[in-house]
């Protein structure tokens, strides 16, 4: 699909407007919506993963060292992770 031009000509519209490119919404970065970004203090983090489980975007990833990190390409800055973090390791800070 990436090779196709967009918006496409009528001849190129997928039959039935079907999308056979699973997970391709990733091409769209929702990070631009964000007014605040989560900042994690790994000194306080207990690696419980509560931020990961409650993220509506599914954009929080566990790193190799066991700490969690939000992918800012997608993070909309809702603040749930900061609000739910048990040991108060995450803070929301203004963008820009």
């Amino acid at each position: 699909m990436k090779s196709k031009k967009w918006p496409e000509d009528w001849q190129d519209v997928n039959i039935g407007c079907i999308v056979s490119n699973p997970g391709s919404a990733r091409e769209y970065h929702t990070g631009g919506w964000r007014a605040q970004r989560p900042i994690c203090d790994n000194e306080k983090c207990i690696k419980c993963g509560v931020c990961y489980i409650f993220c509506p975007e599914g954009c929080i990833i566990e790193r190799k060292d066991g700490f969690f990190e939000a992918n800012l390409d997608y993070c909309k800055g809702c603040g749930i992770c900061a609000h739910e973090c048990w040991p108060f390791a995450i803070k929301m800070v203004e963008e820009g």
Binding site: G23, S24, A25, R26, E27, Y28, H29, T30, W33, I46, K47, C48, G49, V50, Y52, I53, P56, E57, G58, C59, E62, N71, D73, Y74, K76, G77, C78, G79, I80
Partner: peptide, 22 residues
Amino acid sequence: LYAPKLVDREEYFTPGHRACQG
């Protein structure tokens, strides 16, 4: 406490969806 770590890490509903914040 650490149960979130046991869930399937696969995301079948991927980032990039246009739902509202939160």
